[in-house]
Design a protein around this nucleic acid. Structure first.
Lengths: 144, 144
DNA sequence: CTTTGTGCAAATTCTTTGCACCAAA
DNA sequence: TTTGGTGCAAAGAATTTGCACAAAG
């Protein structure tokens, strides 16, 4: 369940490939993101890692996520107004957020490929397609 | 310049159509959004209206924007990680943010029309296509 | 009068910063 | 040893809440 769409590459390999020194904390965050494709918030990551790493600090999680994003090892999502979310899948794909339960998932629909193009003289370097609505679980709940 | 893509409908008509009582403050915010299609932040709206409405409070701007979005008179954009932005154009269109200057503009490219569909059993009620890169001004600056 | 809206101040939440200590090269 | 990483506590920024007063119906 939590491992849906798990990425097979190892966190260690991903860090090295992106030129990031693999400290214990960075490895923990990177592996967490690759094994749990739930688009977690900073708090979710911290709370889930804390039991096995009681010396971990929120600051380190923030530092690490910033580094991962800047190095191309992860992406940041602004789909959720309240909290920044993170994803270890860096290839373009479409995200969905449920208005009722707040869960963010990947959708099997290709976003328009626009990177590298110029549109209205704007140089496009990145794009995100965010969809919102009701997830299957919440659609069904509604029928009761 | 500031009036690019200005909406011709009056703020008063928009409020009435959306079932919102047109208080002085609400009218000021609605008109501001319709006349200034710059996807402003709460602070920008407050600071621009304050000189002509010195009793206006940030709380009222927050209250009003929440009401406008809930009533369908405006939309909220999460394209900018730092600040929520607002737009009086509620028909689906594509937004662009410049990485360098932070300006948010509309782009003349139609986003995929997905509202009303089911994708992976998710009921799609809304969508946003956000593009990021360098705006014409910043592309040119870069050449120096 | 009764309901709705406004605006101040305080509280809350999320994130960043400064700095001392720790760890690895 | 020198550079880089971690984590605490404090600061900062954005937003929300509680409440008293004002305005509108």
């Amino acid at each position: 369940m939590e491992n849906k769409n798990k990425i097979e590459e190892s966190g260690y390999d991903r860090l090295i490939k992106c030129g990031i020194r693999p400290s214990v904390q960075r490895l923990a965050v990177m592996n967490y993101l690759m094994e749990n494709r739930i688009h977690p918030t900073v708090d979710k990551i911290f709370n889930d890692l804390y039991p096995t790493m009681p010396t971990l600090s929120r600051t380190t999680v923030y530092n690490t996520l910033k580094l991962l994003v800047e190095s191309g090892a992860a992406i940041m999502l602004t789909i959720d107004e309240r909290n920044t979310r993170f994803d270890a899948e860096t290839k373009p794909h479409t995200h969905f957020m449920c208005y009722k339960c707040g869960t963010v998932t990947d959708l099997n629909i290709n976003p328009p490929v626009l990177k590298g193009n110029y549109i209205d003289d704007c140089e496009i370097l990145n794009s995100e397609l965010y969809l919102y609505g009701h997830c299957p679980e919440c659609v069904n709940k509604n029928k009761n």
